[in-house]
Nucleic acid binder design. Sequence first.
DNA 1: TGTCAGGTAACAATCATTGTGTGTTAGCCT
DNA 2: AGGCTAACACACAATGATTGTTACCTGACA
Lengths: 172, 172
Amino acid sequence: MRTPAELAALYRSQGRKVTPQRQCIFRVLHGDETHPSAEVVYESARREMETISLKTVYQTLHELAELGEIAVLDVGTGSIRFDPNVDTVHHHLVCRSCGRVRDLVADFSGLELPDGAGHGFEVGAPEVVFRGRCPACIADADGDQRRKQHQQVNFDPQISTNHQRRGALCPS
Amino acid sequence: MRTPAELAALYRSQGRKVTPQRQCIFRVLHGDETHPSAEVVYESARREMETISLKTVYQTLHELAELGEIAVLDVGTGSIRFDPNVDTVHHHLVCRSCGRVRDLVADFSGLELPDGAGHGFEVGAPEVVFRGRCPACIADADGDQRRKQHQQVNFDPQISTNHQRRGALCPS
DNA sequence: TGTCAGGTAACAATCATTGTGTGTTAGCCT
DNA sequence: AGGCTAACACACAATGATTGTTACCTGACA
Ligand SMILES: [Mn+2]
Ligand SMILES: [Mn+2]
Ligand SMILES: [Zn+2]
Ligand SMILES: [Zn+2]
């Protein structure tokens, strides 16, 4: 995504108002490589602006997605994740225990459908997801207790607390 | 997955009861290549057994998943899909408009993480998803009206009926 | 300075999925 | 065949991410 300043200009050029809430979200997202969920963006934004509402966060995230400034990922962690990195072709590593998502900068667009496979399907570039355990979760080789308390807050709450609900993979 | 008969034997050998409901679900799943959701399995099962409950379907599906007889897929269509094909390495084509999932028999397990990428991550085989439009949806090049009525029932209701809600489709 | 997009609050609704409790059925072992 | 008990049905409520709604402000910008 562009810088907060550039986004402000873009918004103005489109007749959208550059509100402090939106700017706050621009700042929060800028440079964030953690693939935050809406809830996480909300929490970050709140640190800067106490009164911002979750609704506004969702709205703005979807606006940015429509503008192509961020990508919407669904990698099956239970909540949708947002990715400000739309300029580099990349894929994702997903931690099964804590839901952390890390970029995997590799271009697998060379993957082709074998002849006759995907008969009639019109598809774009492949999305590749590697699932496993992140370094933090590997270190936490002990009980689930600590892991729950430790990581629940920052990534996908329901991965540790509940099972998975609905959700899926869907990078781009 | 194994045949219904083999599954019955397996269940018995594990001290699990071979109930008509379970057998019904075995039959429904056997040879199904549509990657049905729990709801779809439920509807199919109901045709054979009026009184079967959705709860039982969910339970049995998860049992089968634990036994490794079916795979649990979350490809971002809004509901979890179940895949009886666990014996062939394959990936998936996913239709963005109707949620249809088709097998893509190709072995991409050769994909390796570039050195240094995924630093510290322990991962397994990559999951590859190609998103696009299925032949049926391509044919339905007309308005959304017909597509809604036409495909809503058989795949992922909420893909056509609602926008995306929480684990759903990603534009690209 | 006025206008209206956009924000907030306070809700309710959505939907796939899981949980609960109770009463009933029926598989399977002896 | 009989009994034990897992499984099931039924009828719910609850979950949790996300969206919708309505009414009422506030502040961005022309
Ligand atoms: Mn990314
Ligand atoms: Mn499959
Ligand atoms: Zn982790
Ligand atoms: Zn389709």
